[in-house]
Write a protein that binds this DNA or RNA. Structure first.
Lengths: 167, 167
DNA sequence: CCCTGTGTTCATTTTTGTTTGAACAGTCAC
DNA sequence: GTGACTGTTCAAACAAAAATGAACACAGGG
């Protein structure tokens, strides 16, 4: 079904395309899947909330991708559901405060790794104590200590980051 | 050729294995390939510098991977060549100062994206001015302004990050 | 009920990115 | 020169991650 009266609203216009591409690039740096960038990008540049079906049709992605992408974006606090009134389907809007976006990313993607890292290091620290050769043991202790320093620095940095981005 | 007098020096001992696994996890968070984590991890836990061949044999990776991995680690400032005296082959040692590691990562992996992002946004800003519908144009300008704010925040944060990690 | 519209799940396919290994280049010793 | 050794390159093979789409669950409405 072609729209013969001007541009097809199902297609992205060049400007939208460019914004979407920008966000696709952006999320790749963060190690997130392409579809996340497409979805967030389109929401970011849209004046009205979009439904899952809107995303499917305009981005040419599958319902599955759109559903999973929205789930992740919600968990990151990067999109919220608009209160659609009596509407059946739900519409999504982007969160555009950097503070919120960064906070969600840190909470969901960074902190868990920091935590599990700390655990692994303490296990390592114990094992290092069991080494027989004293010289080797000393060296390992130093390196483990270094890892612990790294983790402490990481822990100190995150709150500062969040604070600086909240402006 | 089996070493019958104790552990084979070509094989990683359990502790080394664990450290390597930790770094493999770590670099994945940063979006870097597995081999980078393996190589840096083994260097980190080794008391002496290691040659390319050492890495190939102990990690069971190809010469190609080792060569490319070392190149990237050098560009990140995460390994340096030990001054091997009259030795033919070169030995590599890890940089273990967080400041240096973070600095290299920011310089090589983060800044370039920030820069290209700024460029893209200014192109976007121009295009937004060409939109006919005044309401749409106003909305787009706001969003572009928002993107510029994000970039400014990003630019402000990096130096602080480097400073905080240099301790 | 049954049917339609909305959204989720998950096994399979597709895409992307990494690793491999063979060919090659450079260097030193003889 | 020639051979042994060290390291690089890059097309092809492979593995990991993401997207697809069909089956499914759920919620109104008629």
């Amino acid at each position: 079904m072609q729209d013969l009266l001007g541009s097809d609203p199902h297609e992205l216009d060049p400007l939208e395309r460019q914004v979407v591409a920008m966000f696709v690039d952006g999320v790749r740096v963060l190690g997130l899947p392409r579809s996340i960038g497409e979805i967030y990008g389109l929401l970011f540049i849209s004046q009205t909330g979009l439904s899952l079906d809107d995303l499917v049709q305009r981005l040419h992605i599958s319902k599955g991708s759109a559903s999973q992408g929205l789930r992740m974006l919600k968990s990151l606090g990067a999109v919220r559901e608009a209160d659609g009134g009596a509407e059946r389907r739900t519409y999504y809007e982007p969160a555009i405060e950097l503070k919120r976006l960064a906070g969600g990313f840190i909470r969901e993607q960074v902190r868990p790794h920091l935590e599990s890292g700390k655990t692994k290091i303490s296990i390592l620290a114990e094992k290092a104590q069991d080494i027989d050769d004293p010289e080797r043991r000393k060296f390992l202790s130093e390196r483990v200590e270094r890892l612990e320093t790294w983790m402490r620095s990481g822990g100190r940095v995150l709150p500062v980051l969040q604070k600086l981005l909240g402006q």
